[in-house]
Protein backbone atom coordinates (compact mmCIF):
# COMPACT_ATOMS: atom_id res chain seq x y z
CA UNK A 1 0.00 0.00 0.00
CA UNK A 2 1.43 3.41 -0.90
CA UNK A 3 0.96 6.73 0.81
CA UNK A 4 -1.34 8.12 -1.88
CA UNK A 5 -4.11 5.79 -0.84
CA UNK A 6 -3.33 6.21 2.84
CA UNK A 7 -4.10 9.91 2.89
CA UNK A 8 -6.86 11.55 0.91
CA UNK A 9 -9.28 13.68 2.87
CA UNK A 10 -12.28 12.84 0.68
CA UNK A 11 -12.64 9.36 2.06
CA UNK A 12 -13.07 10.75 5.58
CA UNK A 13 -15.97 12.97 4.61
CA UNK A 14 -18.90 10.53 5.11
CA UNK A 15 -17.77 9.63 8.62
CA UNK A 16 -17.09 13.26 9.53
CA UNK A 17 -20.58 14.20 8.35
CA UNK A 18 -22.15 11.39 10.38
CA UNK A 19 -20.28 12.46 13.51
CA UNK A 20 -21.23 16.09 12.97
CA UNK A 21 -24.85 15.00 12.70
CA UNK A 22 -24.44 13.11 15.98
CA UNK A 23 -23.11 16.28 17.64
CA UNK A 24 -26.05 18.28 16.31
CA UNK A 25 -28.48 15.62 17.49
CA UNK A 26 -26.97 15.68 20.97
CA UNK A 27 -27.28 19.46 21.09
CA UNK A 28 -30.95 19.24 20.11
CA UNK A 29 -31.45 16.39 22.59
CA UNK A 30 -30.29 18.70 25.41
CA UNK A 31 -32.99 21.22 24.50
CA UNK A 32 -35.59 18.50 23.99
CA UNK A 33 -35.01 17.44 27.59
CA UNK A 34 -36.52 20.75 28.78
CA UNK A 35 -40.15 20.11 27.75
CA UNK A 36 -39.73 16.40 28.42
CA UNK A 37 -38.62 17.06 31.99
CA UNK A 38 -41.44 19.54 32.54
CA UNK A 39 -44.04 17.06 31.33
CA UNK A 40 -42.55 14.27 33.41
CA UNK A 41 -42.56 16.40 36.56
CA UNK A 42 -46.18 17.38 36.12
CA UNK A 43 -47.31 13.88 35.25
CA UNK A 44 -45.82 12.19 38.29
CA UNK A 45 -45.38 15.08 40.71
CA UNK A 46 -41.55 14.96 40.71
CA UNK A 47 -40.00 17.91 42.34
CA UNK A 48 -43.19 18.86 44.23
CA UNK A 49 -44.81 20.20 41.08
CA UNK A 50 -48.53 20.61 41.42
CA UNK A 51 -50.95 20.27 38.54
CA UNK A 52 -50.80 23.11 36.13
CA UNK A 53 -54.43 24.14 35.81
CA UNK A 54 -56.99 25.18 38.34
CA UNK A 55 -59.82 22.76 38.91
CA UNK A 56 -63.31 24.11 38.60
CA UNK A 57 -65.49 23.14 41.56
CA UNK A 58 -67.70 21.06 39.26
CA UNK A 59 -64.68 19.00 38.17
CA UNK A 60 -64.10 17.90 41.72
CA UNK A 61 -67.53 16.38 41.82
CA UNK A 62 -69.10 14.89 44.89
CA UNK A 63 -65.98 13.99 46.81
CA UNK A 64 -66.40 11.89 49.90
CA UNK A 65 -64.97 13.73 52.88
CA UNK A 66 -62.92 11.27 54.86
CA UNK A 67 -63.73 12.37 58.39
CA UNK A 68 -61.81 9.42 59.81
CA UNK A 69 -58.48 10.88 58.69
CA UNK A 70 -56.87 14.15 59.58
CA UNK A 71 -53.93 15.79 57.82
CA UNK A 72 -51.85 18.75 58.85
CA UNK A 73 -51.05 21.10 55.99
CA UNK A 74 -48.24 23.56 56.70
CA UNK A 75 -47.86 26.76 54.72
CA UNK A 76 -44.68 28.68 54.18
CA UNK A 77 -43.79 31.69 52.10
CA UNK A 78 -40.30 32.73 51.04
CA UNK A 79 -39.20 35.91 49.34
CA UNK A 80 -36.64 35.60 46.58
CA UNK A 81 -34.00 38.33 46.10
CA UNK A 82 -35.20 41.52 44.44
CA UNK A 83 -38.75 41.56 45.76
CA UNK A 84 -39.20 44.20 48.52
CA UNK A 85 -42.34 42.64 49.97
CA UNK A 86 -43.39 41.23 53.30
CA UNK A 87 -45.33 38.04 53.23
CA UNK A 88 -46.69 35.49 55.68
CA UNK A 89 -49.40 32.87 55.80
CA UNK A 90 -52.24 34.02 58.08
CA UNK A 91 -52.65 30.42 59.18
CA UNK A 92 -49.25 28.65 59.37
CA UNK A 93 -50.93 25.25 59.67
CA UNK A 94 -54.38 23.87 58.94
CA UNK A 95 -55.81 20.58 60.16
CA UNK A 96 -57.99 19.19 57.41
CA UNK A 97 -59.89 16.08 56.46
CA UNK A 98 -59.11 14.68 53.01
CA UNK A 99 -61.89 15.65 50.61
CA UNK A 100 -63.04 18.87 52.22
CA UNK A 101 -62.70 22.20 50.43
CA UNK A 102 -60.70 24.70 52.46
CA UNK A 103 -59.61 28.30 51.97
CA UNK A 104 -56.67 30.02 53.59
CA UNK A 105 -55.05 33.41 53.14
CA UNK A 106 -51.59 34.90 52.84
CA UNK A 107 -50.86 38.50 53.81
CA UNK A 108 -48.59 40.45 51.46
CA UNK A 109 -47.39 44.03 51.74
CA UNK A 110 -45.33 46.00 49.27
CA UNK A 111 -42.73 47.91 51.32
CA UNK A 112 -41.33 49.82 48.33
CA UNK A 113 -42.43 53.22 47.03
CA UNK A 114 -43.30 51.91 43.62
CA UNK A 115 -45.69 49.48 42.03
CA UNK A 116 -44.21 45.99 41.87
CA UNK A 117 -45.44 42.78 40.31
CA UNK A 118 -44.61 39.43 41.84
CA UNK A 119 -45.23 35.81 41.03
CA UNK A 120 -45.64 33.00 43.55
CA UNK A 121 -44.27 29.55 42.67
CA UNK A 122 -45.60 26.62 44.71
CA UNK A 123 -43.87 23.46 45.76
CA UNK A 124 -45.30 20.57 47.73
CA UNK A 125 -43.35 18.22 49.90
CA UNK A 126 -43.22 15.33 50.26
CA UNK A 127 -43.45 15.04 46.52
CA UNK A 128 -45.87 12.10 46.57
CA UNK A 129 -48.42 14.50 48.08
CA UNK A 130 -48.07 16.89 45.15
CA UNK A 131 -50.53 15.04 42.93
CA UNK A 132 -53.17 14.80 45.69
CA UNK A 133 -53.26 18.51 46.38
CA UNK A 134 -55.76 20.12 44.03
CA UNK A 135 -56.14 23.88 43.91
CA UNK A 136 -59.52 25.33 43.05
CA UNK A 137 -58.24 28.84 43.11
CA UNK A 138 -54.85 30.25 43.89
CA UNK A 139 -53.09 33.58 43.79
CA UNK A 140 -50.24 31.71 42.17
CA UNK A 141 -52.27 31.24 38.99
CA UNK A 142 -51.53 34.82 38.05
CA UNK A 143 -49.10 37.60 38.80
CA UNK A 144 -49.88 39.95 41.64
CA UNK A 145 -49.35 43.69 41.29
CA UNK A 146 -49.13 45.78 44.44
CA UNK A 147 -49.02 49.57 44.55
CA UNK A 148 -46.61 51.50 46.81
CA UNK A 149 -47.15 50.39 50.41
CA UNK A 150 -50.25 48.39 49.48
CA UNK A 151 -51.31 45.39 51.57
CA UNK A 152 -53.49 42.59 50.33
CA UNK A 153 -54.78 39.24 51.48
CA UNK A 154 -54.26 36.53 48.87
CA UNK A 155 -56.62 33.60 48.93
CA UNK A 156 -55.97 29.96 48.23
CA UNK A 157 -58.76 27.40 47.94
CA UNK A 158 -57.73 23.78 47.80
CA UNK A 159 -58.79 20.24 48.37
CA UNK A 160 -56.71 17.21 49.29
CA UNK A 161 -57.85 14.19 47.37
CA UNK A 162 -58.99 11.35 49.68
CA UNK A 163 -56.87 8.92 47.68
CA UNK A 164 -53.76 10.42 49.29
CA UNK A 165 -51.24 7.93 50.64
CA UNK A 166 -52.55 6.54 53.93
CA UNK A 167 -49.13 6.92 55.55
CA UNK A 168 -49.03 10.69 55.05
CA UNK A 169 -50.01 12.78 58.06
CA UNK A 170 -48.30 16.07 57.22
CA UNK A 171 -47.56 17.97 54.08
CA UNK A 172 -46.08 21.35 53.32
CA UNK A 173 -47.18 23.78 50.68
CA UNK A 174 -44.37 26.27 50.19
CA UNK A 175 -44.57 29.41 48.08
CA UNK A 176 -41.53 31.22 46.77
CA UNK A 177 -42.32 34.76 45.66
CA UNK A 178 -40.27 36.04 42.77
CA UNK A 179 -40.15 39.42 41.09
CA UNK A 180 -42.34 38.91 38.05
CA UNK A 181 -40.13 38.23 35.04
CA UNK A 182 -42.24 40.19 32.56
CA UNK A 183 -44.51 42.68 34.35
CA UNK A 184 -45.85 43.98 31.07
CA UNK A 185 -47.42 40.71 29.98
CA UNK A 186 -49.13 38.93 32.84
CA UNK A 187 -50.04 35.38 31.98
CA UNK A 188 -52.42 32.98 33.57
CA UNK A 189 -50.20 30.15 32.58
CA UNK A 190 -47.92 29.96 35.59
CA UNK A 191 -47.28 26.72 37.44
Amino acid sequence: MNSATVSGPARHRPLVLKLTALVAASFVFGFALVPFYDTLCRAVGFNGRTLKDALAAKDVGPVRVDLARQLTVQFSATLMPGLPWEIRPLEPTLDIHPGEIRTTRFLVRNTAHETITGQAVPSVSPSQAALSLRKLDCFCFRQQTLGPGESRELALTFIVNPDIDIKLREMTLAYAFFPAPTPSSPTGDQP
Binding site: L19, L22, V23, A24, S26, F27, F29, G30, L33
Partner: peptide, 8 residues
Protein backbone atom coordinates in the same frame (compact mmCIF):
# COMPACT_ATOMS: atom_id res chain seq x y z
CA UNK B 1 -19.42 13.67 21.04
CA UNK B 2 -22.64 12.61 22.78
CA UNK B 3 -22.42 14.56 26.04
CA UNK B 4 -20.48 17.77 25.37
CA UNK B 5 -23.21 19.22 23.13
CA UNK B 6 -25.66 18.76 26.02
CA UNK B 7 -23.37 20.80 28.27
CA UNK B 8 -23.04 23.40 25.51
Amino acid sequence: VITLPVLA
